[in-house]
Structure formats: structure tokens, C-alpha cells
Design a protein around this nucleic acid. Structure first.
Lengths: 198, 198
DNA sequence: ACCATACATGCAGTCACTGCATGTTTGCAA
DNA sequence: TTGCAAACATGCAGTGACTGCATGTATGGT
């Protein structure tokens, strides 16, 4: 049951972190493509072969925090009151994540730069987000208490993620954009009040 | 200006088609990973090196029709009346695409199987869909006549695609599902009437 | 101190993908 | 028909991500 203090765990965490740090710096300095696993491993003082026991692919280095991000969403969702509508619960959960992003503006932007110039990383990012959608769908299915073949949970999850992604994209590329949480909120609001207007 | 009848064009089209046909068959028989570019080229009676003047990556073989699919969406959208709301125009356009998918059920399902068991193909598919989102966003920006920093067009595009994707996923995985066009329609309807209910 | 297990590492290999050089095919014009 | 130039198929020689396997070493519990 002893999780934390073992030297093993500690070393593992430290190495993983070192790989990530070193890699992101190299990606920025030299570019993603120009940077080889060999360089990364060497700078992190590890054998190249060892890299692959920490990250499955080079792409994953850029997206190391995605699983924590999902945890965050789910945790927030868990804390919403039972009687709140699913959409409102999602809105609140994503507001929290949006605030995270806002406060990590620099890191997010740096990663976005890498993704924008590297198709496979971008693709991988979307793939991980599809995993979020799956997890959210399951969670919403139990929350709503609907049957497994009700399309509603998946639709809600997909829509919420779409709002988040669109807001993020807009926030990072459009000039004169408001803060991310505001964008996200307004997106959720627009969908809540229906789309028949425009 | 002579486009079609040139022998060059004709050969090119035929070879591309041959590569696609041969590849999909091999993927089904042997699995995506077990199939090498060398095999594909050999069966298509081309040199391995030549493969790469027809497809940039192995992944793209599976998704060869994605650009036509985008064309279809945009064409449909173009034909919608000016005074229709953007959301209704999107609904009608995606209904057409949904009908396409429904009628190509087998092909779609086959491709889905490959994607489901192969992360990089799945990721690539999502990446191409992000391209659709971009194209749709531009189109909607001009249609709505809004400024470049209005988040509405992107939000609409992202949401519509989310409905489409969620419906497709549901259609392909859930038991006892209605026809795809009906699913898509109902998704669009739910968002049009607001999400506050559940 | 001892042992079993987890783990870092080395080695050899596969395969997608690329740049460059070369020969062949095609379209066009004289 | 002939000849030329551009387009293109192909071959060659890489590079680099990623994998399976075998082996030694560190770790944690006894």
C-alpha cells in the first residue's frame, strides 16, 4: 500500500519530469522535428532506449499533462450538485479548466505553437481529446441515469468539448479576444439558449 | 485548360485508385500494421518510392475521400438560401452528408474498424476534421458577415461537427440505433431548442 | 546478508518517410 | 514525324521513431 516515498517512485517521477522539461526546451530551441529522441535522452542523462519506458511516442512529450487535465474535468464534474442540469454542470466544470488555461497562458501558447507547426502532434492532441469525450460520455450516462443506447450523453460531451476547443482556438488566434473563461461561458450560454437566431 | 482526357491525368487517377483499392483490401485481410508500403506498392504494380507521390502517409490511404467529403458539405452549404439561419443551413447540409454515410454504410463501417484499432489513423481522421472546421468557420464568417474576431462562426462550425461526429460514433457503436440522418437531425434539434432541460 | 522483482540499458532489427539523381513517358510545337 | 522540355516513375542511400529480446544492476522486503 505504500505509494509515495519509495525511492523507486521518486526516481521515476523525477526522470519523467526531466525528460519533459528537457524536451520542451529543445523543441522550442531547435524545433520539434529537428530534435531527436537521442538528443532528449542524452540531455536528460538517460539511455535512448529508456525514453520509451516513460513515453510511448515523441508526440506524447508535448501532451504529458492531458491525463491530469481530464482528471480535473471529471473531479469538477463530480462536485456539482445532483439536481443541477447536465449542461450547467458541464459549464461549471469547463469554467474551472478554462481558468487553469488562462493562468497557464504561456505554457499553453507554447504548446499550441508546437502543435500548429506539427500535424502529428496536433492529431495526437485531438485523439486524446476524443478519449476525454469517451470518459465524459460514460460519466454523463450514469449521471443522467439513461440507458446505454441514449445518444444524449455523447452529444452533451461532444458539444461541451467543442465549445471548449473552439474557444481555445479563438483565444489563441484571434486579435483582441476576451479572457478564456468569458469566451467559454458565453459559448455555453449561446448553446443553452438555442441556436435558431442568427 | 484541357483537364480530363490527357493520358497523364488518366493514369494518375487510375494509379491512385488502384493503390487505394489494393491497400484497403490488404488492411482488412492482414491488418493495418502488418501491411507494409512495399506490399501495397507491389500489389498495385508500382515502385514503393512511387507510393509517396500519391499519398503523403500510409494513414491517408484510409481517409482518401475526406477532401471530397468537405467539398460536399461546402457545396450543400452554398446552396442554402441566404435568409436561412446559419444553424438551419448547417443542419440541412449535414443531413445530406449523413444520407451519404447511411448509403455507404459498409464502407464507413469498414473504415471505422480500421480507425478503432489504429490510433494514428484515428488521430489523422480527427486532424482532417479540424481542417473541415477551419473551412466551415471561414465560410460562415462570410455568410454571417461578422468581423474576423467574432467567435460565433467557429462555435457554430465546431458544434455542428460535434453533432455529426457524436451521431456517427453512436450510430456505429450503440445497439438498436435509428438511421444516421435521424440521429443527426435530432442532435441539431436539441441544440436549436437549448440545452437547459436535462 | 539474500533474494526476487522492477527497471535501465544495449543490440539488432523493421519500417515509414525523405532527398537526390536518373531514365522514361507525355504533351506540344515545329 | 521529329524533337524538345516538363512531368513523372523509379532506384539508391539514407534518417529516425519505435520494438523485442537479453542482460546486468538497483531496490525493497525478509
Amino acid at each position: 500500500m505504500a505509494e509515495p516515498t519509495g525511492r523507486r517512485e521518486q526516481n521515476k517521477r523525477e526522470r519523467r519530469r526531466r525528460l519533459e522539461d528537457v524536451a520542451l526546451e529543445l523543441f522550442e530551441r531547435e524545433g520539434f522535428d529537428k530534435t531527436t529522441i537521442e538528443q532528449i535522452a542524452s540531455e536528460a542523462e538517460l539511455a535512448p532506449r529508456t525514453f520509451f519506458s516513460y513515453f510511448a511516442t515523441k508526440d506524447d512529450l508535448v501532451l504529458a499533462d492531458y491525463s491530469e487535465r481530464l482528471d480535473r474535468i471529471l473531479t469538477e464534474l463530480e462536485q456539482r450538485p445532483e439536481d443541477e442540469s447536465a449542461w450547467d454542470a458541464l459549464r461549471a466544470s469547463f469554467a474551472a479548466v478554462a481558468a487553469d488555461y488562462e493562468s497557464e497562458h504561456d505554457r499553453i501558447r507554447r504548446r499550441f505553437t508546437i502543435m500548429a507547426s506539427n500535424p502529428s502532434v496536433f492529431a495526437r492532441s485531438l485523439h486524446l481529446q476524443a478519449g476525454w469525450e469517451q470518459a465524459l460520455t460514460q460519466r454523463l450516462t450514469t449521471r443522467l441515469g439513461t440507458r446505454a443506447d441514449d445518444p444524449a450523453p455523447r452529444l452533451l460531451a461532444a458539444t461541451a468539448l467543442a465549445v471548449m476547443r473552439a474557444s481555445l482556438q479563438h483565444w489563441l488566434t484571434a486579435p483582441h479576444t476576451p479572457a478564456l473563461p468569458a469566451l467559454v461561458q458565453s459559448g455555453f450560454d449561446q448553446l443553452a439558449s438555442g441556436l435558431g437566431t442568427h
